[in-house]
Design a protein around this nucleic acid. Structure first.
Lengths: 111, 111
DNA sequence: TGCATATATACGAATATTCGATTAGAAAAT
DNA sequence: ATTTTCTAATCGAATATTCGTATATATGCA
C-alpha cells in the first residue's frame, strides 16, 4: 500500500501519461493559449482537447484565465516543464543507446 | 494524433504513474537492491513487486544485474530521479498552496 | 430575443491497467 | 536428485482510461 504522497506523486505522472497531453504542454511551453489555438495546433477534436485539458486542470498541471468567451490555458508551474524536459532527455538518451546497439548488431560495411 | 516522440514521452510518464512504482524508485534512490529487499521495504506481495518491476524494466526506467539467484535493480538514469524530484516539488508546492487557501477560507481565531 | 462562437460535460464502447492467485524457471544447498 | 529460495510469467476479474458523438452552457453580437 503506497503512502499518500507517493500516490499523489503518481497521479501527477499519470496526468502526463498521454501523448496528447504531452503535446498540449509543449504547445504551452512559451506562454498561454486558448482552447481554440491548442485545438488548431494539435489537430485534434475540440471535445477531445477539452477532455485532456480537464484532466490537466483537475491535477492543477495547468491554470486558466477567462477572457470574454475564450479561456486561456498555461502551465501552472515551470518545474513541470523542467521535469518534462528531463524526461525527454532520458528518452533521447535511450533512443541513442538503442541505435548504438543496433549498429553493433549489424555494423555498416567498410569499403 | 500525437507524434511518435510525444507518445514515447508519455509512455515513460505512464510508467511512473503508479504509487507502488514511485515507491520502488524511491527505494532505489541510493543504490541497487534485490527484489526481496524491495519487497520487504514496500510491504507488497512478491508477485506484485515483480510485475511493477517488469513495467519499469520494459520501459528501461530500471536496469538489472544478476548475482546468484538474486537480481539487483537500479534506476537506469539519474535524470529520472531528478525528474521525480522536480515533480515531487511541484506536488509539495501545490499542497502548500492548498493549505494557504484553506487558511484564508477559515482563518485561525485571534485571541 | 435569436444566433453564432467558444468551451465543457455526459454517455457508451473499446481498450488498458491493476492485483491476487497460481504456476514456472533457475540457481543453490542438502 | 530433491528441496528450497528467489524471481518471473500467466490468467481472470475488477477497475480505469480514452475517444467519438451528442449535448449543454456561456458569452457576445445583430
Amino acid at each position: 500500500m503506497p503512502d499518500k504522497i507517493s500516490e499523489m506523486h503518481a497521479e501527477i505522472c499519470r496526468t502526463l501519461g498521454s501523448g496528447a497531453r504531452i503535446e498540449i504542454l509543449n504547445a504551452l511551453r512559451d506562454g498561454e493559449k486558448t482552447v481554440s489555438e491548442i485545438t488548431r495546433d494539435l489537430g485534434l477534436r475540440q471535445a477531445n482537447v477539452s477532455q485532456h485539458l480537464a484532466v490537466l486542470r483537475q491535477r492543477r498541471v495547468v491554470a486558466t484565465r477567462k477572457e470574454g468567451t475564450s479561456i486561456y490555458y498555461k502551465v501552472s508551474n515551470p518545474k513541470i516543464i523542467q521535469a518534462c524536459e528531463l524526461m525527454r532527455q532520458v528518452l533521447l538518451e535511450q533512443l541513442r543507446e538503442s541505435e548504438e546497439l543496433t549498429k553493433l548488431a549489424s555494423p555498416s560495411r567498410k569499403r
